Computed example of a mutant assay.
Amino acid sequence: MQIAIVLFDGFTALDAIGPYEVLKRLPSTTLHFVAERRKIIHTSDGLVAMAVTETLADVPRPDVVVMPGGPATRELMSNEALIEWVRRAHESSAWTTSVCTGSLILAKAGVLSGLEATGHWMWLEPLREAGANPSSKRVIVQGKVITSAGVSSGIDMALALAARISGEDVAKAIQLAIEYDPEPPFDCGSPEKAGTEIVELCRRRAAAAKPKVPFDPDRFAREWAEQWNRRDVDAVLSHFASNVRFTSPRAKELMGHATVDGIEELGAYFRKGAPLLGTMRFVVDETIWDAARRTLTIIYDRHRDGGIQRACEIMRFDSQGLVREADALYGA
């Protein structure tokens, strides 16, 4: 059985890790963390980083889809590539599931149309607007669709799913293995139990929070150079937007024009050029980050056969943290 847990920048860690800890223990199971591209994905606070193990294209027909949520879910609803993947994956899946605001993505893909569904209690009205019939239940099973409420409920959802896949005894054994026997110090895990004062405090804290995935230009440049040095073209491409525009004098030599448009043409250019680098290694000398313009300049040396060529790349990032424009310049 193939299980795909979707990752995206700005997800909530437990939304993905809770189900992972349960589902990885199912027999005869292969589990993947999937996203549009292989890259490092950060949680909403930027403190947890996870590696994508497969792209969406690599896993088009998983048996189980797990869609986590997080503060970035609203923006994710406009990601047509992901929405289409969810839509198509659901057509052939045995189970399609969500945690927290991940149900909004399922709804956007049409999976929840007319179905009773749940999600984080603060986001039930948007769930209604997206076509579902929202409920405050912790876990809801509707045919092959299972939705769960906020964050921690993903563990409950995964155990319910485990029982349906492998039987109650296996699910119970998994629950014991992870020692899931919660005894919270406060009985306020739902709005109904928490009371008006705590609900309002929670809302104020959520409104004041500013989810942020911090950008480290030095780390980015270091990873970019390391990826080129091992000729990992797919990893390099993971930094670029699908509509990227890349200009380089080398492109004119290899592609017939100095500017390449779109990720497909950029990939073709990189794959033509990579073998020609031979033993060349990139060594980053300096980075200049202009936060206001979201522009990174990487100044680096290209070492080959005892010689050094000075070079730089100027990259402009979009709101999703991907490079939308880039210019490569080379010294003599």
Rank of each mutant, 00 (worst) to 15 (best):
I3S: 03
A4V: 00
A4S: 00
I5M: 00
D9L: 05
P19T: 07
Y20M: 09
V22M: 06
V22C: 07
K24Q: 07
L31Y: 01
H32L: 03
I41P: 06
H42S: 12
S44Q: 15
S44G: 10
S44C: 12
M50D: 00
T53D: 04
T55K: 06
L56M: 08
V59S: 05
V59P: 02
P68Q: 04
G70K: 14
P71D: 11
E75N: 15
S78C: 12
L82M: 14
I83Q: 02
R87K: 13
R88I: 06
H90R: 11
S92P: 13
T96L: 00
T101S: 08
A117G: 05
G119D: 13
G119V: 09
A130M: 03
K144S: 06
V145A: 04
I146C: 07
S148I: 01
V151I: 03
S152Q: 01
S153A: 04
S153T: 02
I155K: 01
A163W: 01
S166N: 11
G167Y: 15
E168F: 06
P184C: 03
P185C: 10
E192N: 11
E192L: 13
E192K: 14
A194K: 10
A194H: 00
I198G: 10
I198E: 13
A208D: 10
A209T: 08
A209E: 15
P211C: 05
K212L: 12
K212V: 09
V213Q: 09
P214V: 08
F215D: 00
D218E: 14
R219Y: 02
W224F: 07
E226R: 12
Q227A: 15
W228A: 06
D232N: 14
D232R: 13
D232I: 09
L237A: 03
S238C: 04
H239P: 04
V244I: 13
F246A: 03
T247K: 15
A251S: 14
A251G: 08
E253S: 05
G256F: 02
H257I: 08
T259F: 05
T259N: 12
E265P: 04
Y269C: 14
A274T: 15
P275T: 08
L277G: 07
V284C: 01
T297L: 09
I299T: 05
Y300M: 09
R302L: 15
G307L: 15
R310L: 03
A311P: 13
A311M: 13
M315S: 08
R316C: 07
Q320Y: 09
A326M: 12
L329D: 03
L329K: 08
A332D: 11
A332Q: 14
